[in-house]
């Protein structure tokens, strides 16, 4: 079953002669538990696609359907509720609050949303333990490595138990090893915990962790690659494709 799909999704910025088509009739389907990477050269529309999937911007034509509901038909309040309950965001930088511990940072979204602190702490600790940070619950961000901080940020995105994680260049600020660690963690989030992850990245090595890569160029889907087996050659394959497209 598809968790999220788009039908002829189109986004045009501006109007008349200065109009720019950022997305051009994009129809994609992402299944529950799937790990999808979106790649393409700068200005290909990958960020716009992520915005529209997250209900951050409205489309010019076509639609986004999450869990059977079309976003365009939702009121602001419902959209806010949907984003809070169904979507978690992971960014390039982790932006944890320096004076709070790992478990406090990870539990913050649900604490603010009214979950009792003890319960929020318990749920956050569970995610952190799954991410091998069980020994680090009470460490502050400055006592954690970059990779560990990003893992706390992923736990924070998951603490409200969203079905969908949207990751925006999640390894953009990490060294190669920590980048691999986060990409493989996001893979685990889909395979072991059944969440759906859609990740924008420009890095073929990171994209190689996904089940499927959607290539965008000039606002259109120009290619889709399903990676059957995880092996060292996938990254090269993707790098080759990016070169073909003209990065």
């Amino acid at each position: 079953m598809s968790l999220i799909h788009t039908e002829n999704l189109t986004k045009i910025y501006g109007s008349g002669e200065t109009a720019v088509t950022a997305l051009d009739h994009v129809s994609i389907k992402v299944k529950e538990g799937e790990f999808v990477a979106v790649m393409g050269p700068s200005g290909c529309g990958k960020s716009t696609l992520l915005h529209l999937l997250g209900g951050l911007d409205s489309s010019s034509a076509g639609k986004v359907v999450i869990d059977g509901t079309s976003l365009a038909e939702m009121k602001d309040d419902d959209l806010t509720k949907l984003r809070r309950q169904k979507i978690g965001f992971v960014f390039q930088f982790y932006n944890l609050i320096p004076v709070l511990t790992a478990v406090e940072n990870a539990s913050l979204p649900i604490t603010l949303d009214g979950v009792r602190p003890a319960e929020a702490r318990k749920r956050a600790a569970e995610w952190l333990e799954r991410f091998e940070l069980g020994e680090r619950l009470n460490n502050r961000p400055d006592q954690l490595s970059g990779g560990q901080q990003q893992r706390v940020a992923v736990a924070r995105a998951l603490v409200a138990e969203p079905a969908l994680i949207l990751a925006d260049e999640p390894t953009g600020n990490l060294d190669t090893r920590s980048g691999d660690e986060i990409a493989s963690l996001l893979r685990e989030v889909t395979k072991k915990y059944g969440r759906t992850v859609i990740m924008v990245t420009h890095d073929p090595r990171i994209a190689a962790y996904a089940d499927r890569i959607i290539f965008l160029k000039d606002g259109k889907v120009i290619d889709e690659t399903i990676l059957e087996k995880k092996n060292g050659k996938n990254a090269d394959l993707l790098a080759g494709k990016m070169k073909e497209i003209g990065d």
Partner: peptide, 27 residues
């Protein structure tokens, strides 16, 4: 103004700025 709408508008705006910064950084 509706505060929820203001937040929504601002979020979309910041996201666009974020992507402009990422694109520039990559260049």
């Amino acid at each position: 103004a509706d505060p929820a709408r203001l937040i929504q508008t601002q979020r979309a705006h910041l996201f666009r700025e974020l992507h402009a910064a990422t694109t520039l950084r990559d260049s």
